[in-house]
């Protein structure tokens, strides 16, 4: 786990939280394929979050919890 990743992962978490509600679509009544556009954003964002969580779990699991020497090898990577 390098210094870069130690800074990046918390930032990624903040972005996931911050854009979970699409503020830039506030007030928009656009309907796409039968559903409000913000609902599509929600579906896409949750899918993205799932991928990000999976990446974290495979690459950086243990960050901030386990001692750095283990996470340096990248958790459970083969």
């Amino acid at each position: 786990m390098n210094r870069f990743e130690r800074v990046v992962w918390p930032l990624v978490a903040i972005v996931l939280v911050a854009l979970s509600i699409p503020w830039f679509l506030w007030g928009s009544t656009t309907v796409v394929a039968g559903f409000p556009i913000w609902l599509w954003w929600h579906v896409g964002w949750m899918a993205l979050a799932s991928v990000v969580f999976w990446l974290f779990a495979t690459r950086a699991w243990g960050l901030g919890i386990e001692p750095p020497d283990r996470t340096a090898s990248g958790g459970e990577r083969p």
Binding site: A13, L16, V17, S20, I21, P22, P36, W38, L39, H42, W45, M46, A49, F53, F56, W61, G64, I65
Partner: peptide, 24 residues
């Protein structure tokens, strides 16, 4: 239906992060 977004942030993101931060 905006409560869907609230649920997504609450359970899908915040609780998942706590799943790691507190849970692990």
């Amino acid at each position: 239906p905006e409560y869907i977004l609230v649920m997504g942030l609450m359970d899908g993101i915040i609780f998942a992060i706590l799943w790691y931060v507190v849970g692990y």
